[in-house]
Structures are given as C-alpha cells and as structure tokens.
C-alpha cells in the first residue's frame, strides 16, 4: 500500500513537472490539438478555452485565429521574449462527439497537472487513432431516429415504416458514396433524391393517412444540424468568419438536399404547393 502511494505520488509529481521546453514544442502540440478539435465539430469558444487552459498550465500564453479550414496559433513564453507560430489545416475527421469529449478531457487532465507533456502527446496520438463508430450500428440507429422524427411530426404507422425504409436505403447509399470518396454535395443530392422517391410510396401505393409526413421526414437525416448550431455559437462569441464559413457550408448542403428532394417530387409528379 505504501509503495503504491509512493508510486502514485511520484507519477503525479512527474506529470506536474513535465512541461514543454520551448514555445515551439507547445505550439506544435497545441496547433495539432486545435486542428483535431475543429475537425471533429467543436465550436470556436471550446477550442480557445481548451488551448488557453493548457498553455496557462505550461506557463505560456497563446493566441489563435480560427478560420474555416485553418488555425493560426502563436505561443509565447511568460517573459514574451520568445514565440512560435504555426498554421495548421483542420483535420477532416467528420463530426465526432467521442473525439471532442476525449480531447476536452485531455485539456482538463493537463490543466489539473495529472498528465505531463510527454504523456499528453501520447494521449493525443491515441485519440487521433480512434476508430469511428460501427457503421452498421450508426446506420440502424439513424434510421430508427428518423422514423421517430416521423412519429413526432404526426406520422402514422405506415408513414413510419416508409420513412424507416427510405432512411435505411438513403443512409446506406450515403455511407457507400462517401467511402468511395465522392463529393459530399453530390452525395447529399443523390441520397435526398432516392430517399424522397422511397418516401413517396405513401402517395404511389396509397399507404396510410399521412403520406405527406413520410415524404417530408424521409430526408431529415441529411440536415446538417451541427454546422448550423455551431455557426450560431460562433456568431454569439464573435467568431464571424468561422460562423459564416460554417453557415455557408451547411447552406450548400441544404441546397443540395433540397434539389434532390425536388427532383424526387418532380419524378413522382407530386405537387408540393
């Protein structure tokens, strides 16, 4: 018991004293960290706070400029006579709450002195190597969630079944096309088209009493909700460039989704007015 206590306190002391030697080392770590945090869908204020927290722990100061695709970080030592700047491109890792949470926990572990610099770098590499969620599980759960949306909007059982089928097919197509590296805008257009056609089954085969709900909710899984929410958050925190970038990105995807939906409605000769 005494040995374990001694070992734990030794490890804690090592962690508390293990810091980056130079602003360069800190800057490279922080810029890599910030790029991954931005790429996984964090808001600008979260990135700023996390990075500042870690820099302060190491006795340094940091300032950053967050752009839609890049982050520019400058780190000074406490005397402000030595600095290092770095520009990194954001990592297109896809939105991941798991990576977001783990990166935030890492920043707190560093700030609380529980993790030294060397261990932080290893932890960051481990987080970067995180495998994405099981795609089949995501496929099923997203379809069930969209089906639930249909129910929330007043759809009956037939509409819910139609939306489930439309989402299963559309989401699988989305996964397949993204795996093949196709442009995400084209992917959204195609998925919205096919999902809306399947969602129009209520009109074609006269299933249920709420075919309009099925048609409307069949493409909801494609709505880029997180970019819109993050855009508003960045707007409130004064990061206007990032906010506008995220908003435009989401708007383009929504336009592609709408075009696919319109295409499906035209093909099915459904008058939506």
């Amino acid at each position: 018991m005494t040995n374990m206590t001694t070992t734990n306190s030794d490890a804690g002391r090592r962690a508390a004293t293990d810091m980056p030697d130079t602003p360069k080392a800190a800057c490279i770590f922080l810029s890599d960290y910030a790029a991954w945090l931005l790429g996984c869908g964090a808001t600008c204020i979260r990135i700023e706070k996390n990075v500042r927290r870690m820099a302060e722990r190491w006795g340094m100061e940091s300032e950053m400029t967050i752009l839609p695709s890049h982050i520019h970080i400058t780190v000074w030592n406490r005397d402000r006579d030595h600095s290092y700047s770095n520009i990194v491109r954001l990592q297109h890792t896809g939105i991941s709450f798991d990576i977001n949470t783990r990166l935030s926990k890492l920043s707190w572990a560093i700030a609380d002195g529980k993790t030294g610099f060397a261990e932080s770098r290893r932890a960051l590499e481990a987080i970067k190597a995180t495998r994405p969620a099981n795609k089949w599980m995501v496929w099923v759960l997203a379809s069930l969630a969209n089906m639930s949306f249909c129910r929330l909007f007043g759809g009956d059982a037939a509409a819910m079944a139609t939306v489930l089928l439309a989402t299963l097919a559309g989401y699988r197509l989305k996964q397949a096309m993204l795996e093949d590296g196709l442009d995400v805008r084209f992917v959204f257009f195609c998925c919205a088209f096919f999902s809306s056609v399947i969602g129009a089954a209520g009109y074609v085969f006269h299933w249920g009493d709420t075919p309009e709900v099925a048609l409307g909710t069949s493409v909801l899984y494609l709505i880029p909700g997180i970019p819109y929410i993050n855009s508003v958050s960045d707007l409130l925190d004064g990061h206007y460039i990032s906010s506008f970038g995220r908003f435009m990105n989401a708007l383009v995807l929504t336009a592609c989704l709408s075009a696919g939906l319109c295409g499906g409605l035209l093909l099915m000769n459904i008058n939506w007015l």
Binding site: A169, L173, F194, V197, I198, A200, A201, Y203, V204, F205, L267, M268, N269
Partner: peptide
C-alpha cells in the same frame, strides 16, 4: 400508372 412505374424503376435502380 406512370407514377408507379417511375417509383419501381428508381427503387430498382438503387
């Protein structure tokens, strides 16, 4: 009818 044919063809294509 035409609507049903279009639906079947599209879903079949997918």
């Amino acid at each position: 009818n035409q609507q049903t044919t279009a639906w079947i063809l599209t879903v079949g294509c997918l």
